[in-house]
Design a protein around this nucleic acid. Structure first.
Lengths: 221, 221
DNA sequence: TTTGGTTTGTGACTAGGTCACAGACCGCAG
DNA sequence: CTGCGGTCTGTGACCTAGTCACAAACCAAA
């Protein structure tokens, strides 16, 4: 990945006007962050607009009582859109962003970001679409936390995390943090799933034995 | 309120460049909506950027099971920021906006909004700050729904709704929708508050007898 | 093989959401 | 004024989920 061709990784940016593209490429830098790095958090404002080339960033919230909940994830090809709102609005961010894997990203400085927003309708569309997706997503999170049963939510999360390989490397505690619930609750639900033969568990890992059964539960009203 | 002086109602817009101000005033229209009007909702995309001059818009979500939760309110002097994200990103909105009182607002057409974003740093700042505030707020909602006790949340809500006059005109059902919980739960908590002498209740109304007691509960960890 | 940290299991209890239904209250038509 | 229908509130029984305390299992490094 050289400094000049990363634009190709973002479908929404391919249509950018040539002069704009040059400005973007010239002033941005490609940064690498090790897994586990805290990218932003309360009292730690982000100072650049991030476009992810590789890896995953997890955005989560920690309550006063120490319980956690995952708000959303940013993957390759996406931007840290909400971070930007706070970047632009100078508000303090309540959530924190953690590099879940090694991350490679383009850091667009504040000034360039502002210029791009001003001068390119394509870039505006790109940024606002990203916003839009995240916000719709947040609304879904609120809906689920407030109104969905925990077994349904856990089934959904298992399918989401184990998509494809049918295997998940997470502790019960980590799954609880995903859902914003308590570890014991996850343990009990997993036991129930295992009793029904839907999954098999071992320390720090889960295998989906009957994903279709989970899918049926996940689709419950 | 004439068509030319409403800008004064928005502190963030006072610094706008004169040419921009003219453009904004000339292409926007002041609209009036009766209390109860549904301004936007699922399958009903907003087609203008709204700046509230008078009244309150309630943005809420209705779950499949019919339960509701209030996400936030937009008051005079504020903008329907999140709506705009969806307006710009062309995403379908999951939530709905209801005029809670009679509402007077400036409707800025999509084209003008786009022009303003492009040409005025002041307007950008205004819009992004509004975003920022809303998102921070949404994060707080998620935190409270996921981790706060219902008695604490109800006490907070009573104080919020009864600010000043110490009187609230809401049914238990409406309060439940504010918090995303069930009516019975609210009824029981209100009975408990009344038993302690903190409030007095009557059909469709609540009076705060000892707000300082509620405040103490609301501040609980 | 011991030791210490991490992960998981479990029982007892509390908080809160669900269900079913009863009664209270209110405005209004007769 | 008196019923009447609709809305609002109260309540008990029950279920789900979160909390607390503690034990057991597992793993890795000393």
């Amino acid at each position: 990945m050289t400094a000049t061709d990363w634009i190709a990784a973002f479908p929404g940016l391919k249509q950018l006007e040539p002069a704009i593209t040059r400005r973007l490429v010239e002033t941005s830098t490609v940064v690498r962050l090790a897994a586990g790095t805290r990218i932003f958090g309360p009292g730690q404002a982000p100072e650049a607009y991030l476009l992810l080339l590789e890896g995953v960033v997890r955005v989560q919230q920690v309550s006063d009582t120490g319980r956690e909940i995952v708000l959303y994830r940013v993957s390759a090809g996406e931007s840290c859109a909400l971070t930007t709102a706070c970047l632009m609005g100078y508000e303090e961010y309540q959530a924190e962003g953690i590099a879940e894997t090694d991350v490679e990203a383009v850091a667009v400085p504040r000034g360039t970001f502002d210029d791009l927003i001003a001068s390119s309708a394509t870039f505006r569309k790109f940024v606002f679409t990203a916003f839009s997706v995240r916000i719709t997503n947040l609304f879904r999170v609120i809906d689920e936390v407030a109104f969905s049963r925990i077994d349904v939510r856990l089934a959904q999360k298992l399918l989401e995390l184990g998509s494809g390989k049918g295997h998940i490397d997470s502790t019960h505690q980590q799954l609880a943090a995903e859902l914003g619930t308590a570890r014991e609750v996850v343990s009990r639900q997993l036991n129930e799933f295992q009793r029904r033969g839907w999954i098999t568990t071992s320390r720090g890992a889960i295998d989906l034995a009957r994903p279709e059964a989970l899918r049926q539960l996940a689709a419950a009203p």
